[in-house]
Write a protein that binds this DNA or RNA. Structure first.
Length: 571
RNA sequence: CGGAGCGUGGCGCAGUCAGGUAGCGCACUCGCCUGGGGUGCGAGAGGUCGGCAGUUCAAGUCUGCUCGCUCCGACCA
């Protein structure tokens, strides 16, 4: 492609509202433009990146036996009502009415569509395993879109869905997808880390995320992992073994209400009684789908709201407001406790049940209760792990957990039979019994991944694309096209590379060398060929990798081979 | 939704406090110069100052309403 014939609107200045380097570079490099908050247009360079990455994913999916289909983005609400998710998706789902006033949704994922498809066709265990996928636009009406393509309201995703007759068969299908994911990301030039994650709105039994680990604040998720990688999970999901030393008293003492004026926070209470925060229980009131729930964790710990949300089966969980705290506990913020609460669910973390004679709020301004014991003084609705893990905690095998920052590029969900039962995707097994399919669903962020790659691979001048997803492999730059020798050589090399099927962007613009070099560095094509008088006198052109500092001189007639050789050794 | 800001040529901004001829840099067009890291000189074109209503002789500037956008938080691929 000739630069003058394509459309690459690079910018000299940064756009003021882009926070992330990768977002900034996509805008400056002329890859994307924003149409509205969280809605982007993909320009020619970006389109090529998307195509290249899509094709890698497509090839790996096909290799794993998945079959490509396309499902409609527009979907009748009815299907979502059947699965129950019409109520649980909340405002993230974009909804509209058609001209007949029928409720419709713009899909953010396709479990419902694919399951209702399969429900009508799948009758026998002989038809499984089945794996269907598509690469398509998705809609999620994010509360706060940000970070460019990382969190948009419209984005492209590869989503795959598996249907199996038995757990054994499902395990194989799942593993095939996991393997395909590693293969696809590796071909795109990046290494991902598989971590355990919460299933969230997807439901189901277990889930994994595929994270790109980054140094910057771009990682919107924290991962806890052991040094050797034996365990890795995202913060919300991470399970840990608590190693805190607790000074428990063996004898259970009498309850006592104590005046603690001005001591509302854990820190103040701990100071007041001159004890460690592990001797206190933190009582936090939440509203779960409008109903009050109290969460009790040890004083030195924080509530994991995802775990809590799962514990009570809530769709929407938020911390209670001041007036709600007053209403349900009778006391002000900072003095809440589990004793004497009525019509409030009490979820207690196991770490609290291990304490004796601990301290809680009295639900009265300026008072706390001491010598509290769970089960004796109040009855938990449920005892369940609701504590947020943190770095420094121990994993199950005793190794220390360390924190890393990651960008989620893909995920895999073990859905079980949630959707197949709801939407009637049933089959007859070998014994002639009717069974629901065992399902899995699998996503890869097609537009998000390239931006994450940029976040990982860039320098102060611009992007450094891995070769397999670079919009072009080679950037061909004649310093001065007015010089006939340079122009002729450029044309010849351009033709030679094209004839070999090598993607080359030929900068034939009447720009000064500096502009061309800067633009080339900015858009980050892996290999640059420079044609200038100095080296051309000896029949040479200059070959340079974007990721490397030094260039080499190559005879014009050897350039194609040299490019191939360089491409081979580059990431 | 809670908190904080911002909307002025394509992009980045000044001007708003204190009402009185809409400005700067980059980009763009034309001419000349230059020609190995965002070149220099000259001449141009381009703006409903987010929108609506109000105050005023006069509104980018003051008032009210409204729309959009960004950042922090809750939500998430």
């Amino acid at each position: 492609m000739r630069w003058s014939k394509t459309y690459i609107p690079t910018l000299r200045q940064n756009q003021s509202d882009a926070e992330l380097v990768s977002h900034q570079l996509l805008l400056r490099g002329g890859f994307i433009r924003k149409l509205a908050s969280g809605i982007y247009l993909y320009l020619p360079l970006m389109q090529r990146v998307i195509d290249k990455f899509s094709n890698i994913v497509r090839e790996e999916m096909n290799r794993a036996g998945a079959l490509e289909i396309t499902m409609s983005v527009l979907c009748p609400a009815e299907v979502w009502q059947q699965s129950g998710r019409y109520d649980t998706m909340g405002k993230e789902q974009i909804r509209l009415k058609d001209r007949h006033d029928h409720d419709m949704v713009l899909c953010g994922t396709h479990e419902e569509s694919v399951t209702s498809l399969v429900a009508g066709e799948l009758k026998s265990y002989r038809q499984m395993p089945l794996n269907l996928y598509q690469i398509q636009v998705k809609f999620r009406d994010e509360i706060r879109p940000r970070f460019g393509l990382m969190r948009g309201r419209e984005f492209i995703m590869k989503d795959a869905y598996t249907f199996d007759a038995t757990e054994e068969s499902f395990a194989i299908s799942y593993q095939k997808m996991v393997d395909a994911y590693f293969a696809a990301f590796s071909r795109a030039g990046i290494e991902v880390q598989k971590v355990e994650s919460d299933t969230g709105a997807m439901g189901g039994k277990a889930a994994h995320e595929f994270m790109l680990l980054v140094d910057t604040n771009a990682g919107e998720e924290t991962i806890l992992t052991t040094e050797n990688g034996s365990y890795a999970a995202n913060l919300e999901k991470a399970v840990f073994v608590d190693k805190a030393e607790i000074e428990n008293e063996s004898e259970l003492k009498e309850l006592e209400t104590v005046d603690t004026p001005g001591a509302a926070t854990i820190l103040e209470v701990k100071k007041f009684f001159d004890v460690k925060s592990t001797r206190l229980a933190k009582t936090i009131l939440y509203m779960a789908d409008g109903k009050p729930v109290v969460a009790l964790v040890r004083g030195d710990r924080d509530v994991n709201e995802v775990k809590l949300s799962n514990a009570v089966g809530a769709v929407e969980l938020e911390m209670a407001k001041e007036e709600e705290i007053l209403k349900y506990t009778g006391g002000p913020v900072g003095y809440s406790g589990p004793i004497g609460l009525k019509d409030v669910q009490i979820i207690v973390d196991p770490l609290v049940t291990k304490l004796t004679n601990f301290i809680v709020g009295a639900n009265v301004d300026g008072k706390h209760i001491i010598n509290v014991n769970c089960g004796r003084d109040f009855n938990p609705t449920k005892v369940m792990d609701i504590t947020l893990a943190r770095k420094g905690d121990k994993s199950a095998d005793g190794s220390k957990l360390i924190a890393k920052s990651g960008i989620e590029l893909g995920n895999t969900f073990q859905l079980g039979t949630k959707y197949s039962e709801a939407l009637g995707a049933k089959f007859l097994n070998e014994a002639g019994e009717e069974m629901p399919c065992i399902m899995g669903s699998y996503g890869i962020g097609i537009t998000r991944t390239p931006q994450a790659v940029i976040e990982k691979y860039h320098d102060d001048k611009g992007i450094i694309w891995p070769k397999n997803i670079a919009p072009y492999l080679v950037c061909l730059i004649p310093i001065n096209l007015e010089k006939e020798a340079q122009a002729e050589t450029a044309e010849a090399i351009y033709k030679a590379l094209n004839d070999e099927g090598i993607d080359v962007l030929y900068d034939d613009r009447k720009e000064r060398a500096g502009v061309k070099f800067n633009d080339a560095d900015l858009i980050g094509l892996p290999i640059r060929i420079t044609i200038g008088d100095k080296s051309l006198q000896d029949g040479n052109v200059e070959l340079k990798a974007r990721s490397e500092k030094d260039m080499e001189l190559v005879k014009v007639e050897n350039i194609v081979e040299a490019v191939k050789k360089m491409a081979n050794r580059l990431n």
